[in-house]
Amino acid sequence: MSAVVQSGQLPGGTGPSAGAEADGAGVSGLRLAVRRFSRNRLAVIGLAVVVLFFLFCFAGPLLYSTDQTHTALTSANLGPSGSHLLGTDAVGHDELGRLMYGGKVSLVVGLAAGVLATVIGTLWGAAAGYAGGWVDAVMMRVVDAGIAIPALFILLVISAIATPGVWGLILILGLVSWLVPSRLVRAETLTLKNRDYVHTLRAIGGSHTRAIGRHILPNSVSTVVVAATFQVADAILLVAYVSYLGLGLQPPKTDWGGMLSAGLSATYSGRWWLIVPPGLAVILVVCAFNAIGDGLRDAFDVRGRG
């Protein structure tokens, strides 16, 4: 189930369209990865979908300008028409414009929280794996404990205490979802720290920080990038859950989950345009990021799960 609710990604293995093996020799690793990625049809479609949604949310309002701040009760609950392509919601916001407006929040919060989670997880995992011994044991038990409490439950507890804004939301989501990447990076660090070049660096007097910063992290970059992509997918889904369950932003600010929550009562009265577009938007974008992650994992040939 979703990240959110779900922790971790769809189990991988090689997807049906996993990269071809017959790549030419003498090509750089990165170029090889790009070539493999571009042969994964699902992943390329995913990338296109993400680009389209960014254009839709950020450039769209330039072409289709709507008032998303003020309510217009005289034009509330209108069906789709020439002047409101996707109709209007219960307080008169144009629904298509709202889809762009809310999408900005969903995408920005999802991206930022996903990246933040990956950064925290990477540092934690690298430190634990590099330190080893009891420090590692304690740090990883903390990760286990975090995974034992599903993110959704923690988020609801927090929602009972405070109502965050966009930045608060990013921070909270980042702080509850760094656990899976930390496990992946730790596993990577365990193999990297015993490489000769790390031992050599230490022997000639290089510091631990330098060993982690110059060797371990750069060599884990493919693992981290793949983890970050899945993390973003999960975060976008998590934002949708969180807004739906009530920790969301206050109107007139909204995101796709908030739109779904607001349109809930419209389900039975046939106003499908309040529910279906934001729902499909979430599904498409999350699918797209997962497909990209899948493609990257195959392209970089890394294990994607912890």
């Binding site: 979703s2 699902l42 859950y241 979430v282 599904i283 497909a291």
Partner: peptide, 16 residues
């Protein structure tokens, strides 16, 4: 593809 979609669908949206 269906697995991807099902996995990416918020449970409440599916329920709805």
């Amino acid at each position: 593809t269906l697995s991807f979609v099902a996995y990416s669908t918020p449970v409440y949206f599916l329920g709805l």
